[in-house]
Design a protein around this nucleic acid. Structure first.
Length: 591
DNA sequence: ACGAAATAG
DNA sequence: CGTTCTATTTCGT
């Protein structure tokens, strides 16, 4: 059916969205802690593989997901650090997120994983388009503050900052075109803002990022991939077709069409396989003996988009199945045409859920299971206290606890074992007494296991004949709600804090000439963390230590004068930003 | 509300 | 080349 089609296929191109992706994030966290690592080949290990490595290591033949044995053979002098404890990465991610948040006027700042952030910067862009002097675009000033007109940076509003797609795009003629001028201008301003934030991140936080600029989350994320690391790409118009029937003449289409169908965010493994099968008219083949990853029998977005008869209804019937939400057909239909009107979500102060899990080769006695539950639950309570508390108060509280296990399937008759990723879970209301006990997490964990997790476990595994055989256990709290705080909203605290930190660093740190930036940002900070509870993973250099950023924070004060936003500690003489005073006092006097 | 499943990094 | 450990979303019930 469907000829004239009443599908909502109009793309909203009124927004400017920037996607940040920190370069080789795990390695960068170690480098930010210890800048002398930057010039060395550095790799981060989890289990038997390199999960990421810096670009010096890549130049020497290392790469992601490489076996440690191979990595050591290829590059014997690589520095390999253990990255199995995610604490430092989570902390760095949270701090950078709040740092970026301070740039936003609308607080539409959404995180994906540890190393990606979208920002809807439309409000800033629209304001700055209004104040543009069209008679002197070369000498424009981008105002980054709603209240202080002197805050901002100079830029040339006739040129894109960074790269563009297509690389050969002629910005001058786009600006001269009645059709494309407005959109071009907005994206162009977006590119300058993105570059400003990127440079700021490099100078003040020692992180480089790769950025994409477009009018949707989909486009900004994908287009950023074109120039990495430490680059940025803007998808320029024309976004709209001249002909009514097809979109083949837009940059959106030419850009998206070349992508593998599985490369589109929102199209996962299952959906991609079904689409490949449809286009190829047979099941896609796998690599020899491998269960993971299809052999890249490349089926592209273009193939799917132009496949005959693949309208939203057809896609829906093709793709529907267990786990698929209704409307998946229309969603895919829109995605492959570059239509993604999904909002950048409002910034969050707390995660929606926290879970801790471990997998096991052998876990089959009650005692072992109780021990593991106690251990997992202690870690869960530590995480709750870290992520949901501020200044001694719970600013967010969970409403539910869940226990999830993955039973190992029994052996088949022929001695093989069928792979099973299926999980089973059971949940219960979150016990509020956990919030009131301030003692050690261990005792509290034991109590919680006794009262909550063991009952849930018995419901999950009613009969114990012959014991259990679990390959995975997960403890979680979810339905986390932010609490109404007395007086002001906790959001402003997190956001303001990073803004203050930024000003503090600008004032106290050595001046860096913005016009001379060529290589890596200079090393500028040494800091000793007062946190005793953070387990160390591995140490290379005991001289330069942690540079983790969290709310309980302090800075080294080897500089003479303090700005107005800082004070000098009477006990140790350190220069401390004012927001960190409480934490610093606690450092000297823990009780 | 609860449990399962898909997606993503 | 092995995926592990998270976190989010959405479905059916």
């Amino acid at each position: 059916m469907s000829s004239g089609s009443s599908y909502r296929l109009t793309r909203n191109d009124d927004r400017v969205i920037v996607h940040f992706d920190y370069d080789c994030f795990y390695a960068s966290v170690f480098e930010a802690e210890n800048p002398s690592l930057k010039s060395q080949p550095l790799a981060v290990q989890q289990k038997q593989i390199i999960v990421t490595c810096n670009y010096e290591a890549r130049r020497r033949g290392l790469h992601k997901l490489q076996l440690i044995t191979e990595a050591k053979r290829v590059c014997p002098d690589a520095i390999i650090l253990l990255g199995e404890d995610l604490t430092r990465f989570r902390d760095a991610s949270k701090s950078l997120y709040n740092y970026l948040r301070a740039f936003s006027w609308s607080d539409e700042v959404e995180k994906l994983g540890f190393d990606e952030v979208w920002m809807d910067v439309t409000a800033l862009i629209d304001y700055n388009i209004e104040i543009l002097n069209n008679n002197d675009l070369h000498n424009s000033f981008f105002c980054t503050s709603k209240v202080d007109p002197t805050q901002g940076f100079s830029y040339d509003a006739t040129k894109i900052a960074g790269h563009s797609y297509p690389a050969s795009a002629d910005v001058e003629s786009l600006l001269a075109s009645a059709e494309d001028r407005q959109l071009t201008l907005r994206l162009l301003l977006g590119s300058h803002l993105a570059q400003h934030i990127r440079f700021d991140l490099e100078e003040h936080r020692n992180y480089t990022a790769t950025v994409g600029v477009g009018t949707s989350k989909l486009i900004s994320k994908l287009v950023g991939n074109l120039n990495k690391p430490r680059g940025q790409t803007t998808l320029l118009p024309p976004y709209r077709s001249q002909s009514p029937d097809d979109d083949d003449d837009t940059t959106i289409t030419s850009f998206l069409d070349a992508h593998d169908i599985g490369a589109i965010p929102g199209i996962g493994f299952k959906v991609a396989q079904k689409l490949r099968e449809h286009v190829l008219e047979r099941p896609p083949e796998f690599a020899d003996g491998l269960v993971y990853g299809p052999t890249r029998e490349k089926v592209t977005v273009g193939h799917v988009r132009t496949a005959p008869g693949l309208d939203p209804e057809k896609l829906e019937s093709l793709l529907c199945g267990p786990g698929m939400h209704h409307g998946i057909g229309l969603e895919v239909y829109r995605l492959i045409r570059g239509i993604d009107n999904s909002k950048v979500k409002d910034a969050r102060n707390a995660p929606q859920s926290i879970s801790i899990e471990d997998s096991y080769i052998k876990l089959n006695t009650y005692d072992q299971i109780v021990r593991e539950l106690n251990d997992l639950t202690k870690r869960l309570i530590d995480r709750m206290r870290c992520d949901l508390m501020y200044d001694g108060d719970w600013f967010a509280t969970p409403r539910r606890v869940t226990l999830t296990t993955r039973p190992r399937p029994p052996l088949n008759a022929d001695g093989t074992r069928t792979r099973n990723f299926q999980r089973i879970c059971k949940s219960a209301p979150f016990p509020l007494y956990v919030l009131n006990e301030i003692g050690h997490a261990e005792a509290l964990a034991n109590k919680m296991v006794e009262n909550i997790y063991l009952p849930l476990f018995r419901q999950l595994h009613p009969k114990a004949k012959g014991g259990w055989d679990l390959s995975l256990v997960n403890v979680a709290v979810d339905m986390i709600q932010e609490n109404r705080q007395h007086g002001r909203d906790i959001s402003s605290v997190f956001k303001q804090q990073e803004e203050t930190r930024r000003e503090f660093e600008r004032d106290v740190l050595p001046y860096v000439d913005q016009t001379q930036r060529t290589g890596a940002p200079e090393k500028y900070i040494n800091k000793v963390s007062p946190e005793p509870s953070r387990p160390e993973v591995s140490h290379l250099d005991s001289n330069v230590d942690e540079m983790e950023e969290e709310e309980d924070d302090e800075e080294d004060g080897e500089h003479d004068q303090a700005p107005t936003t800082a004070f000098t500690c009477d006990t140790c003489g350190m220069t401390i930003p004012s927001f960190a005073k409480t934490a610093h006092d606690r450092y000297h006097d823990p009780d």
